[in-house]
Design a binder for these strands. Sequence first.
RNA 1: GUCCCCAUCGUCUAGCGGUCCAGGACUCCGCCCUCUCACGGCGGCAACAGGGGUUCGAACCCCCUUGGGGACGCCA
Length: 469
Amino acid sequence: MEKKTRFAPSPTGYMHIGNARTALFSYLAGNRFILRIEDTDLQRSQPQFVDALIEDLQWLGITWQEGPGFPDGEQYVQSRRSGIYRDCLQQLVHADRAYPCFCSTDELARTRARQLAMGRPPRYAGTCSHLSREDIADRIGRGEQPSYRFRVDADDIVRFDDLVRGEQIFHGRDIGDFVIQRSDDSAAFFFSNAIDDAMMGVDLVVRGEDHLSNTPRQLMLLSALSLRQPQYAHIALILGDDGTPLSKRNGSQSIRELRESGFFPLAVINALARIGHHYQDDRLLDWQALVAGFSMTNLSHSPARHDMQHLLHWQHSCMKSMDSQSIFTALPAIIQHELPVSLREDFIEIVRYNCLFPADAMIWFDVLTRSVPDMQEDARAMIRQCIPEWFNAVAAAIATTTDYKSFIETIKTTGGYQGKSLFMPLRAMLSGRLDGPELARIFAMLSPGQLSERLEYCRALSGENHENL
RNA sequence: GUCCCCAUCGUCUAGCGGUCCAGGACUCCGCCCUCUCACGGCGGCAACAGGGGUUCGAACCCCCUUGGGGACGCCA
């Protein structure tokens, strides 16, 4: 059976992990996915963010069957749908379910502050709820621009079944008359959002818990308009690593920041899919498994934190399990162009087990392609401790063989070195650092010329040290 | 202030009245593998927010407290 879900972002900024997770869960919860752009806030909406949104979604691998990018894509952009909202408003006004409100934002803010100060719930005071027809005509005639409010009956009771939280009951008295059209004629969120979900045939609205207590408003609206009501699923919000709401300070990153730092989309998706949702399988899941294993009943009800540690774990898993070609194409362009084809396979294995991000591959690219690599401080220290006999042993080995096994064997027999005392200085000399890929692989990838140059460089380094003594 | 939601290891979570002196994953620590770092394998540390009920029996059900989150916008 077809189940339509949607993601309805407003293009007022770059998509962050919170949005992305909502999009993901919404995508996973249905089998036909709509992308709708909610740009009714003309002040803050910017076209560049629409493009960014689309890019980010595509990068993540979240695809839609209706929305921008399709021939009728414009119909999924709210700023192109104002006629629809106007008609609906008309209908509500005729039925006296909505009325013009001439209160200024300042007035409203003052009343709200006063109510709060007196320890009362802030509700619209109803100043304009019963203006006479003449009054209204008169004020409009004078050029006043009203907003429109939806009339909420205090005795109204709205109940609905939230797919993750169960039955919800709200009372009209806890909800004041609310604005559905702003004084600049644009539709307010409650209004356009609910209408679009209904008219686009959305079966299930998956959204953040911050919308839970607003849902009754939308249900009232839909019922007053005789529009079909979708089901709702309100997912717990995601918090920063410090347990407070997500913000720039506590680890909230935009999807594009993650992309730019080299995260793989599947790593991000795997991390997001497990914040507030669990899969039986705790290994890295591909899209097919992600879809198959998703269940509304596996959603948790409590807010969860986003922890970078987990993201890094999934990144690590991706790197280990990705096919070689995908790793290669993710590498910095210079490596793709300049790495000799003969070294490619070995290099990818080095990246796989020694890098978290594709860009980290530059370290090993330099190590393998320069005549002498950058020497890390701890590697220098290691080399400085080496005595001339050690270098002689290595020199002998280089002269004797190009085979790793016999190379090592020669150093052992010539110099009497073994274990750590053999491998660590050798590692430092060959790679300029104390950690990294297995030495056999590095050795095999270096030319005899590189070997000698590194040896002489290190011998000199050690010599300087001895002279200074 | 009013209304709503939530509460298991540091983090993500399993658990839906007995099989839980609470299981998995990440982190951290140890051991093993490797003539070297890492990778990998094995093991360890670590939690039912507090208080009342209900019940033969409660992490699981009810109430209160505490703590967190959300809504009450001409933001979405």
